[in-house]
């Protein structure tokens, strides 16, 4: 029954997400548009970390799109619904305590998949990015699975911030992680000191996983470890904040 009850909420959360045009635009259309803008003027001989600019930026923008879908989808809604009392109302149903967070994350994950795939399709057809079939599949799976790290961060922010503070806070985290993690411009353009910091960000490790697949390599152990540590940190933080919130009622 628990799976079933959670499913009803997931379904409704998804319907809502798909109805929200602004959210769909920023998570699905915007990353592809940004990709075309950045990759469009690139010199075809220019390479970043052994990849052509479109190939490199394709993973960056797919990661950026997935980040947008899961981070934005979770944090703001959770903070607002905590404040409005909807979360409290749900606690008066048979829905298991984690069901709410699961439903939010699941619906965000469903939106993040098209945001990844659309960037890939645009890159393949408009910028002629060519990869082996296994690389396309592995890329989609990796970028999608990696977005869970940021879904957990979104949940933590949603339980950390009040309804008023959540948007600026999320924006700072979102732009900070996107820019410094090298999703918008390659880190090779950064000064060395900034690069030293950026290398430790989860967004950098996230995009690096995809770029390793594009190069035909196995994902780097350090990147995997970095992401795993951040995932544990965000899930732990979210769980702690969630429990604190539940005691406050």
């Amino acid at each position: 029954m628990n799976t079933f009850t959670s499913r009803a909420l997931i379904r409704l959360e998804l319907i809502r997400a798909l109805r929200n045009r602004k959210f769909l635009f920023f998570s699905v259309i915007y990353p592809s548009a940004l990709f075309l803008l950045i990759a469009g003027n690139a010199d075809s001989t220019e390479r970043i970390s052994g990849l052509t600019v479109p190939t490199y930026m394709m993973v960056s923008m797919a990661s950026f799109g997935a980040l947008t879908a899961v981070l934005m989808g979770n944090s703001e809604r959770i903070a607002k619904e905590r404040e409005s009392g909807w979360v409290r109302q749900l606690r008066l149903t048979a829905l298991p305590g984690r069901g709410y967070v699961l439903a939010k994350t699941a619906s965000a994950a469903v939106v993040s998949l098209p945001s990844i795939v659309v960037v890939f399709v645009v890159a393949a057809f408009a910028k002629d990015v060519q990869l082996a079939a296994w690389q396309w599949l592995a890329l989609t799976g990796t970028v999608w699975a990696g977005s869970l790290v940021f879904a957990a961060l979104g949940v933590a922010l949603g339980y950390l911030a009040t309804g008023d503070a959540v948007r600026p806070l999320t924006m700072i985290v979102y732009f900070g992680l996107s820019m410094l993690g090298g999703l918008w411009m390659p880190m090779t353009t950064f000064p060395q000191w900034l690069r030293d910091i950026a290398e430790w960000l989860p967004t950098h490790a996230y995009a690096a996983l995809g770029q390793a697949i594009e190069l035909g390599h196995a994902p780097g152990a350090r990147d995997l470890a970095t992401l795993a540590v951040y995932f544990a940190l965000f899930v732990g933080g979210a769980a702690w904040l969630y429990r604190k919130d539940a005691l406050k009622a």
Partner: peptide, 27 residues
Amino acid sequence: GAMLQSGGLMEDVTVRELVELACALHP
């Protein structure tokens, strides 16, 4: 079954969708 004074409601869904959810959540 409880009705809270501060019970916020889910937004961007119809009345029917919300009641359907409440029914799905009830044993």
